[in-house]
Design a protein around this nucleic acid. Structure first.
Lengths: 326, 326
DNA sequence: AGAGTTTTGTATAGATGTTGTCCAGTTGAA
DNA sequence: TTCAACTGGACAACATCTATACAAAACTCT
């Protein structure tokens, strides 16, 4: 942060009151009621006021509130930490256990969201958004889904069925390529963002996710990455079109414990099979190799030869990863 | 000073009053009633007048209005931000939440970050993260960059040089495919997420972004989408591998005003040229067609034939989009 | 362990403040 | 004429304010 230029002409930007309560609520994830309650009860911040009495928060107020949100999410009591100085709060946050550091409370309880949605209802909404070529609407469905569904439910009852239905509708002519591309792009970005936001604890074992062949979409691999994160692994995502040498290099540089290969296309190809065998030779016997994706079964014998594990369902995948740690 | 903003190329000063309220309304997506109300109530802008009292807005007025539109879309209240200087507004916009709502973010503003603020310093950090195959570190650099750099600077002085440097280092053997893929994946997700979070006002004109050929990466197209959003357009992003019929379908369904074609590979291909011509026939003469990307110049004659505009630099692109609305 | 107390997040009601849109009437431009 | 733009007043929808209330969770103390 910039050094304080005290006594210099011109207002200090960090303390200038300029954010309305709506902005602060959005940026901190704290609901407006709670912002007012904390201020009234503990004097957590002292925002300025407009002429007509509306609150105006400064950047420093926002930082303070963000720190408090993290502390309360980590089971500190608001009454205990409310009056600390900014430095006190930063120090407390710094000594938080890393597990709690990334996973704060689910973000926006802010707006009054209408009643709980089922995965099936959300799926319908998503399909409508795809048919109308409205990427924003699709994003909004996915975003809402994260509030109502657990991560496994989200994967298994919304994202996978959605992609499957879009694929079916495309093949039978009800949807066009444009629809399919739009849906894939949005879902892919959504998954990648969700994965990036899930920070694993330090010291987590590392899983490399890649595909040896050239796939149009990388969604299966991203779903595997998401699952790996849920199981407590750190994930290095390399994507499609990765030669075995490159995968092995990444395993080596980062000291990975396992590799997941997404095998979508083509099925039963000799070049791909050779790449799989080469990968095993390059990484040595210590590293676990898992494989999944539509055409993984067609490589079953190759995979068995190199002591790789076929993981077609989430449970297989979880089981295989857990075995590697025991 | 950088001073290299994405403004229109014309030598005329930005302050010359020359746009009617109708043009400004189309270009900003703000309805005329609202433009007048903001001016009357808050003095948001002070456009010149013709002899008979019609408003004439300058380019700077338009920029100011676009910034205000983004801020109000992000829950800022017009009354709070109306009187800020242009720089204040730019600073506020740069602060807008960069990550997707719906998930807790890694914590940005704590004092832990030393003052790496310039684009060059951030670029160095980013290259280190890429070389170490640390996607999380690269994400964190990009996220911090959104706080310190304006969007055009971010595009032109961080993201584009980063991709270029990675490409160079890959070709000369210093980096491997794995590095290049990792960097592309992260940057792509970052851009797509940033774009998704920038919500255009209702009534904004629509730009379709697509590529007729099969590109490994879609980064150029995503950069174009980002630029379009900054200029106040709504963007429908379709991605690569799009037949002309599909692009035309999307234009038709959503009533788009313009199409941006990203032409990366292959250069001078007859099939691609035919697709470009077909696109013009399908969408009719009303829809603007722009083209950019590495191999766009190799299609210059085809593009000229169908009255499409070659947009290789941000300024060309901005100029072409603005012309369509005048 | 269990009863009582405190803490804490959320809810409601009623009173303003704020803001996008609309209307009526007028004037210049095509 | 017909259309676009101008002004100033009006208004409904929504945001935000204060104050009080309440239930669940956490804590205290026997």
């Amino acid at each position: 942060m910039p050094a304080n230029r005290d006594s210099a002409p011109g207002a200090a930007p960090d303390t200038a009151p300029r954010h309305s309560i709506a902005v602060v609520s959005r940026r901190t994830g704290l609901n407006q009621l709670l912002l007012r309650a904390w201020e009234r009860r503990y004097g957590v911040v002292a925002p300025g006021r407009t002429d007509t009495g509306r609150r105006l928060y400064s950047d420093l107020d926002i930082e303070r509130l963000l720190l408090l949100r993290r502390l309360t999410a980590a089971d500190h009591r608001i009454g205990d930490v409310a009056t600390g100085t900014l430095d006190d709060l930063r120090a407390l946050v710094a000594e938080l256990p890393p597990a709690a550091a990334g996973a704060a409370r689910p973000f926006p309880p802010a707006g009054t969201t209408p009643g709980a949605k089922t995965a099936a209802a959300l799926l319908d909404e998503a399909l409508v958004a795809v048919a109308a070529l409205q990427p924003g609407a699709l994003e909004s469905v996915l975003e809402r889904a994260t509030m109502h569904l657990s991560r496994p439910t989200l994967r298994q009852e919304l994202i996978q069925p959605l992609l499957q239905r879009v694929g079916e509708l495309w093949r039978d002519g009800s949807l066009r390529i444009a629809h399919e591309h739009m849906a894939s792009t949005i879902v892919q970005t959504f998954l990648a963002t969700a994965n990036a936001n899930q920070v694993p604890a330090t010291g987590s074992p590392l899983l490399v996710v890649a595909s040896p062949s050239r796939n149009r979409h990388e969604l299966g691999a991203l779903l595997a990455a998401s699952l790996g994160l849920d199981l407590g692994w750190e994930v290095l995502y390399l994507g499609a079109d990765m030669p075995a040498e490159e995968i092995a290099l990444a395993v080596d540089i980062r000291g990975a414990r396992a590799v997941f290969l997404s095998l979508i296309y083509p099925p039963g190809d000799a070049v791909v099979a050779a790449q799989i065998e080469l990968l095993r030779r390059l990484v040595g016997p210590q590293v676990g190799i898992l494989a999944g994706g539509g055409s993984a079964p067609s490589y079953a014998t190759t995979l068995a030869d190199i002591d790789a594990r076929l993981a077609m369902a989430p449970d297989d995948f979880a089981g295989a990863l857990n075995e590697l740690l025991s």
